[in-house]
Simulated scan of single mutants.
Amino acid sequence: MVREPTSGGGRGVSRRGFLAVAGAGATAGLSGCLGSNPIAAVGGDPREVAIAGSSTVFPVAEAIAAAFDEERSDVTVSISQTGSGGGFSNFFCPGMTDLNNASREISEGEIEQCGDNGITPIEFTVATDALTVVVNPEADWIDCLTVDELREIWRADGAQRWSDVREEWPDEEFEFYGADTTSGTFDYFVEAVIGEDANHRSNYYATERDRTIVQGVQGNRHAIGYFGFSFYSENPDSIKAVAIDAGDGCVSPSLETAMNGEYTPLARPLFTYAAQQSLAEPEVRDFVRFFIERAATDIVSEVGYVPITEEVRDENLQRLEEAVAEVTG
């Protein structure tokens, strides 16, 4: 159910602003509000949890929020896909959301911005992703790329045509689809593939909408793109995943290869960050606890990611309880 959250716990104005901006901004489109609230039906204020951030983590958060709604219909969970960086800078650090999903660690600059606004981010690992390079199924000339070849394709002033990478490949221009610069996926790809001595190319279709990347690659035989494994796993028959050779042979992206460490360098942890100050609110800490517990279950693998281990779950829960004790004790 799409609903503008109302006031509660002294945070109503900022949350209302979050949804207003998310609904109006092209890069921060509201992706969904989950929750059916009997309190609202009789004129009371619904209790809310507001989340922004990574489009990669969104499927996990959406699935867990739907499960939470089945148990806690008195709480509305609002989720927006803004990109990891866009979520931190525009919503979470200004105090407009309770959580921020991220496909990379929070940066020092973001920690400083949060601190300037009295926000203390608490990090929780919620899954492992196999960041996936995809091409059109008719691109029968390619099944595997070395990391160096992938870098050549995506670096600024790099390859412009398939034949620039391997001379036996088609003498046709690439059509590029990838993550927007506000995305944690973009940041991770730059770090893992492009490196510090080059820049990511700018002449590509950049988007936070991963399904737009799917559609673009589906529509052009010479297209190439990258995004989280979840969006490939939804479309395995209409796009083709490219195996990656990091020096020990070609390894295809999968939950198994991400979990056992074979899929390098594109296997990566996924996170959600809670504002410690929001944990003073019972509905927020209840949802965060539920999120952490369910992140260790099949609900994560069902959307295309590797669940966290019981050990990581327990570490997350201990970190949560320590943060809660500081704001409620």
Rank of each mutant, 00 (worst) to 15 (best):
W141S: 03
Y305A: 05
V135H: 04
G228S: 14
G158V: 01
G178D: 05
T297V: 00
N203H: 13
A52N: 14
T182E: 14
L279A: 08
S233Y: 08
P46M: 03
N260A: 00
R209S: 15
V193L: 03
S301T: 05
A24F: 05
D129I: 00
D143W: 01
G158N: 01
A20Y: 11
Y232A: 09
S78C: 15
D98K: 01
A63I: 04
E123V: 08
V126T: 10
R268H: 12
G109D: 12
Y204D: 01
G35T: 09
G329Y: 00
G184I: 01
V57Q: 04
T97Q: 04
N260M: 00
V324D: 00
S238L: 11
Y188R: 11
D116E: 14
T97E: 08
I153D: 01
R319A: 15
E310F: 05
P38V: 02
N136E: 04
V327N: 05
S54T: 14
E152R: 05
D197W: 08
T328G: 07
H200Y: 15
D197E: 15
N37A: 09
E172M: 03
Y305G: 06
A192D: 02
P46S: 08
D143L: 01
G216S: 03
F58S: 10
E149I: 01
I111E: 15
W169Y: 14
A41Y: 11
A41T: 10
S73P: 11
I106C: 07
Y205S: 14
R72Y: 13
N100S: 08
H200R: 11
N260T: 00
F88T: 06
Y177E: 02
G109K: 09
T27M: 12
Q318E: 15
V217Q: 00
E167N: 14
T56G: 02
E281P: 00
D245S: 02
V214P: 06
E234F: 02
G17Q: 13
V306S: 13
I153W: 02
Q160V: 10
G195Q: 08
V49S: 04
N235I: 04
E167T: 14
Y188V: 02
F186Q: 02
F229A: 13
D286F: 00
N100G: 03
N37P: 07
P121W: 07
P236L: 01
R104Q: 08
G329Q: 01
E191W: 06
P5F: 13
A258N: 06
E191G: 09
T328K: 10
D210V: 11
E311S: 14
R285C: 09
P38K: 04
G85V: 10
T128S: 12
S202D: 14
G184M: 03
V126N: 07
G10L: 02
S252I: 06
